[in-house]
Simulated assay, not measured.
Amino acid sequence: MYDETLARLAAGARDDLGFLLLTAADAVVAATLAEVAGQGYPQIRRVHVPVFVHLDPDGTTISTLAARAGVTRQAMTGVVRELEEEGFVSTAPDPEDRRARRVSLTASGAEYCRAATAASERLSARWADRLGPEAVDVLRDQLRQLAAGSSPTVPD
């Protein structure tokens, strides 16, 4: 009944910028996670990444982490709980709001972050070897513009 509609959507998705960006991001995250899994961190999953990425050095409330990651507080609470059980983060009452929980990185969490950063740098170097350093720099700049919400300029 909707075969044509789905076929057109699938055909369009192959070249859709948003779809390509999501697919590329998924591939990069998967490659990074696979590399750090081989270094002793197989328990870290894609859902855990936003906690590490959005965590402030002095700790961050679960509500703030959820807002930064674009998920519900309840979902973030579950993810933080998993990471706390694995020893990568700790939680304590927030000194500014005793009802809130502040999430902080542990020594194990810092070790994971160092391993993930090194893996990301190695993967970036591989992309630079494959595409050329200048092309990677241009790609980074363009992605920053897209992430900042810059609209493409249309020539007159």
Rank of each mutant, 00 (worst) to 15 (best):
L17P: 11
G18S: 08
G18V: 06
G18M: 02
F19M: 08
F19W: 13
L20G: 04
L20M: 12
L20D: 08
L22Q: 14
L22C: 04
T23R: 15
T23M: 12
T23A: 14
A24R: 07
A24I: 02
A25S: 14
A25H: 13
A25I: 10
D26T: 13
D26N: 13
A27Y: 02
A27E: 14
V28S: 12
V29L: 09
V29K: 08
A30K: 12
A30E: 15
A30L: 05
A31C: 06
A31H: 03
A31D: 06
T32P: 01
T32K: 13
T32S: 09
T32W: 01
T32G: 12
T32L: 10
L33F: 08
A34L: 08
A34E: 14
A34F: 10
E35Y: 00
V36S: 05
A37H: 01
G38E: 11
G38M: 11
Q39D: 12
G40W: 07
G40K: 04
G40T: 10
G40I: 03
Y41F: 15
Y41C: 12
P42S: 06
Q43M: 07
I44V: 11
I44H: 02
R45T: 11
R45F: 03
R46S: 13
R46T: 12
R46K: 06
V47A: 11
V47D: 11
V47N: 02
V47K: 05
H48W: 00
H48K: 02
H48S: 01
H48R: 07
V49F: 05
V49I: 09
P50F: 00
P50V: 00
V51W: 04
V51A: 01
F52S: 02
F52K: 00
H54R: 03
H54V: 10
H54D: 13
L55D: 06
L55H: 00
L55P: 05
L55C: 04
L55N: 11
D56N: 11
D56L: 10
P57G: 07
P57T: 02
P57A: 01
P57V: 00
P57H: 01
D58A: 13
D58R: 12
D58I: 08
G59K: 06
G59M: 05
G59D: 00
G59C: 04
T60I: 07
T60V: 09
T61Y: 05
T61H: 05
T61S: 14
I62H: 08
I62S: 03
S63T: 15
S63D: 15
T64D: 15
T64S: 15
T64F: 09
T64Y: 07
L65Q: 01
L65V: 06
A66K: 02
A66G: 12
A66E: 07
A67K: 11
A67M: 15
A67L: 14
R68L: 14
R68A: 14
R68K: 10
R68W: 05
